[in-house]
Design a protein around this nucleic acid. Sequence first.
DNA 1: CTCATCGGTTCATTATTTGAACCGTCGCTT
DNA 2: AAGCGACGGTTCAAATAATGAACCGATGAG
Lengths: 260, 260
Amino acid sequence: MSTIGKALTLLDAVSRLEKEVGLTEIARHCGLDKATARRFLVELEKHGFVEQDPETRRYRIGGAPVRLARIREARFPYLSTAAPFVRELAEASGETVHLSEYAAGRLSTILVEDSPRANRVIVEVGSVLPFHATASGLAFLAFCPARQLEDLLSAPLEAFTENTVTSANDLRSLLAETARRGYSICLQGLESGVISTAAPIKAPNSLPIGTIAVAAPLVRADEATIHRLGSTTAATAKRISEKFFGLEQLAAQPLARRAG
Amino acid sequence: MSTIGKALTLLDAVSRLEKEVGLTEIARHCGLDKATARRFLVELEKHGFVEQDPETRRYRIGGAPVRLARIREARFPYLSTAAPFVRELAEASGETVHLSEYAAGRLSTILVEDSPRANRVIVEVGSVLPFHATASGLAFLAFCPARQLEDLLSAPLEAFTENTVTSANDLRSLLAETARRGYSICLQGLESGVISTAAPIKAPNSLPIGTIAVAAPLVRADEATIHRLGSTTAATAKRISEKFFGLEQLAAQPLARRAG
DNA sequence: CTCATCGGTTCATTATTTGAACCGTCGCTT
DNA sequence: AAGCGACGGTTCAAATAATGAACCGATGAG
C-alpha cells in the first residue's frame, strides 16, 4: 500500500477508536511501527486532520475535516438536502431513521434521527454498515453494478447474528426481491431484535449514492407495518433524489449568486 | 515535504479551486507532475476524500470528510455548540456573523450566518482568514503565544487594500490594544468598505481555539456602533467558551449515555 | 484534417520511507 | 525509594516506494 493509503488508514483508525487515543495503541491497531505512526500523525497534525492534546499527549480527529465537509456540503449538499426528509420520516414513523453515504467502498452513517420512544434502536453517526447484514447495505447492493456485488461475494460473509444471511445464493435472491420491491428488509441481520427497511438514493445515472433506512424494535413491527414503512422509505428516497439532483441542475447554471 | 504532506496539500487545493476540477489543473496548481497528481487522487479517492465525476472525469471533495467531521463534532462539538450563539449574534446585530477555527496553522471559516440586509458582507464557508488583515486574525494573534506572532512577522505582511496594516510595529500596537479591550477591530483590512470586529474563543488553558466575528458595511457602522458590536461579540465568545468547555467536563465523566 | 489539450499510463532513475534499537519520563509495585 | 514496565518520542543505515519524461488515445476547436 502507498504511504498515503497507510496514513489515511491510520486516520480512519483514529476516527474509529476512542475519543482520544495514544501513539502506541494507534500503531498497534494499524500494524505500523511506532516511529512510522508518529511521522504520519505529525504530518496529519500539520494539516489539521488530527490534534494532539497538549496535556495527555493523546491524539484525536482535528478540525480540517470540518472545513472540508462544509465545502463538500456547499458544493454537493447531499446531507443538508436529505436532512429534512430524514426528520420527516422519523416523525411519521416514530422510529429511528438514518442516512448513509457510499464513499471509499463503504456505506457510512452520516445522519441519525432518533425515535422518541424509550425502546428504540441506536445507530451511531460514523458507523460503517456491512453490506450483507443491514437494510441499507441490501438496498445499496440491489441497485449497484453487478461487478461490485461479485467483489463482495468473493470474500466469506460474516455472521453477526444467527439470522445473518451468509450464503451467496440466499443473498442473491434477497437482492432480486429487493430490486423488484424497491426497498430492502433486514430481519435481525446485524442485531437481534431489530428489523429495518431501506431504500437507495440514486444519482441520475441510476447508481445509488447512499441510502435512507428505518430501524425498529422487532416487537413494534409486524409484517404489514414493515412493508408500510418500506414503501414510505422508498418514496422518501425518491423525493430526496429528485430534490437533490434537481438542485444540482440549478446550481450548475451560471447564476449571479453574489448579486446582493 | 513528505508524500503525505503533498497529498494533503493537493486535497486542500481541490477544496480551494472550483467546484469540480480537472487533473491537469490540479497538477499545475500544486506544482506536481501530472502522473504524481493522479496517483495521489486515486489514493485519496480510494479513501473517499475525493470523488471523480464519471462523466466529466473531473474531481471534487468526497464524502469521507463528512463522516470525519461528524465524528469530530460528536467528540469535540465546537461548531454545534457555537452555532446557536452565532445565530443569536447575527439576529441581535443584523449583520453577517462568522465563526472560525484554528487548525493546521490557519484560521478557517466554518460557519457563516448572513445578515438579512440587502447590502451585506459575504463570507464564504471554508475561506482562510489572513491573520494580520481580518478582525478574526487580530483577535487570535492578540491572545496566542508570542512565539506564533513572531513566526508570522518573520515573513512580509501582504497588503490586501490600502488600509491593510503591513508594518510589524503597527501590528504589535494594534494587538496590544486588542488584548486590553478583549475584542479586535479591523477597518477595511481585507476588503474596502468593510469593518469588522472579533473576539477569541479560548480553551481552559486560555489559548484561543477559534474566533467569532461580525462584519458590517462601513456605511452602517460608526465608531460607537462598532464598539458596541465588539463588546457584544466578546461577551458571546466568552459564553461559547463557557458552554463548550463546561460540556467538555461533563462529557469526560463516565455517564451511562445509552441507558434508554 | 491538423493541432493542441485533455485524462491517463509506463518504467528506469531517484529520493523517500522504514523500523530495530535507543532515550527519558511517568505511574505502579515491591 | 528503588526497580519495573509501558509510554511518547528519536535516530540512522537499509530497504522500499515515489517520481517524471515520454508516451498513448480521445476529444474538440480552427
